[in-house]
Design a protein around this nucleic acid. Structure first.
Length: 123
DNA sequence: ATGTTGACCCCTC
DNA sequence: AGAGGGGCCAACA
């Protein structure tokens, strides 16, 4: 029984999903009080090397009242990615993370060794 | 149909 | 530690 290309790309999910849906599905799993990096989300979604796509996917949702914890995604340097395009949502992101007990260093960085989310191993 | 732009990442000086 | 460059690819003009 040959496996279709789409199914093969989608190692966690039974049905084919769009790249964005894969990204959202991963972000939804990030625990309270923890953070994941864009690259980490991409890789877990089966999109290795496409970290930029994660940023773009989150850009689509952060203004709407979404149940996706978009604020728990930061860059590989442990920083919030600031951009004027975000119209203040980047500053909101820091505030939301601090509300979850995450501490920032003086230069605005999060210690990934302390706060990075480790996904549960699935069988 | 190109060309440009990013909430990115990694490597090399 | 900071800059530069290549890779990535959907969205947009």
């Amino acid at each position: 029984m040959p496996v279709s290309q789409k199914t093969e790309n989608c190692f966690i999910f039974a049905l084919p999903m769009s790249a964005y849906d894969k990204i959202y599905a991963i972000v939804q799993q990030i625990s309270y009080g923890r953070v994941a990096t864009y690259g980490q989300v991409a890789e877990l979604a089966g999109l290795y090397g496409q970290a930029r796509l994660v940023g773009y996917a989150l850009y689509q949702i952060n203004t709407s009242a979404s149940e996706i914890p978009w604020h728990r995604v930061i860059n590989a340097k442990g920083e919030i990615s600031y951009s004027s395009l975000r119209r203040g949502d980047d500053y909101l992101q820091r505030s939301l993370l601090e509300d979850e007990g995450i501490e920032f260093s003086q230069d605005g960085k999060i210690d990934l060794r302390r706060y990075q989310w480790q996904p549960e191993n699935h069988i």
